[in-house]
Design a protein around this nucleic acid. Sequence first.
RNA 1: GGUAUCGUGGCCGAGCGGUUAGGCAGUGGUCUGCAACACCAUCUACAGCGGUUCGAAUCCGCUCGAUACCUCCA
Length: 490
Amino acid sequence: MKNKLYIYNTLSRKKEEFSSLIKDYVGMYVCGPTVYGDPHLGHARPAITFDIVFRYLQNNNYKVRYVRNITDAGHLENDSDEGEDKISKKARLEQLEPMEIVQHYTISYHKAMEHLNCLPPSIEPRATGHIIEQIEMIKKIIKNGYAYEVNGSVYLDVRKYNEDYNYGVLSGRNLDDTLEGTRKLDGQNEKRSHVDFAIWKNAPKEHIMKWPSPWGVGFPGWHMECSAMSEKYLGKTFDIHGGGNDLTFPHHEAEITQSNAAHNCVPVKYWMHNNMITIDGKKMGKSLGNFITLADFFSGSHPKLKQEYSPMTIRFFILQAHYRGTLDFSNKALQASSKGLNKLMGACETILNISSSEKNDFNIQELSDKCYNSMNDDFNTPILISHLFEGVKIINSVNDGTAQIDKESLMLLKQLFQFFVFDILGLKSNKETGDKNTTNEIMELILKLRKKAKDSKDFATADLIRNDLNEVGIEIKDGREGSSWQAKSK
RNA sequence: GGUAUCGUGGCCGAGCGGUUAGGCAGUGGUCUGCAACACCAUCUACAGCGGUUCGAAUCCGCUCGAUACCUCCA
């Protein structure tokens, strides 16, 4: 880490110096997907954002337990009595068991994450596997006097809570304003106040996913799972909680409320929120129907997409913006990322072949410091990448013979690229996929044949080889010292 | 109505009071059998109006505009 790490904490709306609660250990909880639909570009953002946090902390000698939940119990569609579990609704539409849906979309989520080279979390708990823990926590909240039961449902009493705690610390809302909000109330509401929220919900007969509880057959409220599961695996107070900024309110606010109400204990030290990916300036989201699935990106099969984009291009595209800013999707931007990534990966291969000399024109240590500093400044990956492109320039200049680097600096530069490009940013070369050795040998042969054609001035054959390889995504690079090849990413 | 964020050159995106961000695209060169790659050089900025300051894209105020949350959403 070399220096202090600063993290922007939503609680204080400031960057704060990071120090873990227990020396050398970090507990991190991130809100995962509700598995009722195909993973889309929006899901990639928090996954990649917190993958970077996970990797950076791990590579700086922290032992990190990274917990990311799978929400498979669904959430209420709305808070009226007609509320219906999202997953059971989908199940009825498709005539499937709820867990069948959950299984299907969980697998497609995992596949997409693997393509994006996101490391799997340490623990990936499911809401349905932690009903008992949620019930236990609800019991505590009732016992502490912050919740009440009505007709088999349990609601958190926000007004009561606000007498002892500060409701709205995370989202910057104060209760009085919220109470005066212009939202209309449905007449048949059981809640004492419209700001109260359900922590256990009585299940109507037709509801498919339900469990027995002290209050009758029902299902847990929208926010309970994260509170219960984070406590189970990370303790009552842990270091980092992440998620999309659309979850700040009410979801994360409710988590804080529940933890205080149950344990008289603040659950999280650092709250981190990634911003949204937008399309035509609007949030890309399921409810707006303007989302593009990750599978669509990888295959290029969506009317908005002019071509296919590789998972690494998507990853690089996301990393080229800071996680707290919105990121606007467009073909132009993605194409730019694709080309930029190619350039970077090309340099990663070139660096393996360049040789050092006595003279040295570069200060690699300074470059290294700049890379660390950018990461230490709230994981500023776009700045890191801009510094890495400085490194690209160095590598290519040395390769071109227009500049020189000494042995020590070259070694440092190699380490720097390995660390930041592969270990931290989690990028990977398309060359690595498949049987690397065989491919290399075949390509050597092809390059040899092409050289033969060139030597005998058979340019038609040379061009045929080059053009056809280009079509399958392999680029031939002719240089002074002969030809080389690179797998292009789209 | 409340809460928060933001408005940077052709596009995407950094910038946290003083020094070239970076990528892509464009232009002119070098290299090449031609090209691509690479290298060198180069062109477009900080929504508007005030204020603070020796100095502001960066701080403050106002105006205009955009977005998110206040129902599930990454």
